[in-house]
Design a protein around this nucleic acid. Structure first.
Lengths: 161, 161
DNA sequence: GTCAATTAAATTGTGCACAATTTAATTGAC
DNA sequence: GTCAATTAAATTGTGCACAATTTAATTGAC
C-alpha cells in the first residue's frame, strides 16, 4: 500500500526470499570459502579439494569400489571416474576391475598415495589455527551439519522415489 | 605398537584425518545435498541453483554491477559473466555498460525476471516443509553458518594478502 | 596534459558436479 | 540353460567455480 511501491515490487512478506535468510546460501557460500582456504595447503601436495576428500576416505578404508567411494562421498561415477583417472595418472592410486565381479572397479592406494597421508597430517591443525580458535562451538556446528545432512539425504531419497 | 599395523598405517592420532570429523566435508556434502533438493523446484522455473541465488540478490537490489553482484554472492566475473549471459539469453535480465563508467556492466531485471519472483515465492515454504520441520534450531544453524562464513572470509582475505 | 597504475569485465583453461544415456557384466525367474 | 531385469562404470553434455591472463576504461601522480 506504500505509495513508492512499484509494479513488480510485491511488498508482502518477501523476507522469505531474502538472500541472507536462506540456509542454502549460507551453506553454499561457506562451502566455497572453506574450499578456498584449503586450496593453498593442498596446492603444495598437488591435489584438489575433492581429491583430498577422496584420499581421506581411502586412508580410512583402502580398496573400496567406485560405488562404495561414491556412497561415502555422496558422488556418482560421473564425477568420480574422471577424477580417479586423474589421480591414477598422478600415481596416487590404481584402478582395477574386480576379478570376482568385472562390473566393479576397485581403487587401491599406491605407496605415493599412502605417503601423502604423512604430508597431509598437518593440514587439519593448520586450518584449525586459521579458523577454529574463533568459533564458539565447532563441535556443535559439525554435529548440526551432520544432522542437516542426514535430513537432506532423507528428503532427497524421498524425492527421487 | 599393535602387531597388525602395516608399514603405511601410521597408528598415531589420525582421528584428525577422519572424513567424518572434517567440518569442511560436512559443509561440502550439505551444500550439494541442498542444491539437489532445490533442483526439481527450480527446474520448473527453468533456472539453476546459482541462477536462483542471483535472482534473489537482484530482487533485493536491481541494477547492480557485476562487481557488486559478485561481492554479494562471493563469485567473480569468471563465474558470473557466462552465467549472466545465459540468463540474458533466457530473457531474465539485461546487461548494459554503465554510460558513466564504461568498465562497469549493470544488470537489470526484465519483466520476466521480476515475474519469476511470484513463481519463486512458494519455494522457501516448500523446502521448509521438506526439511526444517525436523531441525531442532534452524535459526541457530543459520546464524552459526554466517559466523563461520565471516571467519572464513576473514581467513581467506588474510591469505590472499 | 601524459602515462603508469589501477579497476572492471571478459576470456582462457582446468576440474569438478550431475542428469541422462550407454556399455558390459551379473542375477534370477522361468 | 535362457533371457529379461538389474547392477556398476563409463560416457556425454551442460553448467558452474576459480586461478590466471587479457582487454579496455579510468584515475591520479607528476
Amino acid at each position: 500500500m506504500s505509495t513508492q511501491s512499484e509494479a513488480h515490487e510485491a511488498n508482502d512478506n518477501d523476507s522469505l526470499l531474502k538472500l541472507d535468510n536462506q540456509l542454502c546460501f549460507a551453506v553454499y557460500a561457506a562451502s566455497r570459502e572453506m574450499t578456498k582456504l584449503y586450496r593453498p595447503l593442498l596446492e603444495r601436495l598437488d591435489i584438489t579439494y575433492p581429491q583430498y576428500l577422496t584420499l581421506l576416505a581411502l586412508w580410512e578404508r583402502d580398496g573400496m569400489t567406485v560405488k562404495s567411494l561414491g556412497a561415502r562421498l555422496y558422488l556418482d561415477s560421473g564425477t568420480l571416474t574422471p577424477m580417479l583417472k586423474r589421480m591414477e595418472q598422478q600415481g596416487l592410486l590404481e584402478r582395477m576391475r574386480d576379478p570376482e565381479d568385472e562390473r566393479k572397479v576397485i581403487i587401491t592406494l599406491t605407496d605415493k598415495g599412502w605417503a601423502m597421508k604423512d604430508e597431509a597430517k598437518c593440514i587439519p591443525q593448520q586450518l584449525a589455527g586459521q579458523v577454529c580458535k574463533l568459533t564458539d562451538a565447532p563441535d556443535k556446528l559439525l554435529q548440526d551439519l551432520h544432522s542437516l545432512l542426514a535430513l537432506l539425504r532423507q528428503a532427497n531419497a524421498e524425492v527421487h522415489e
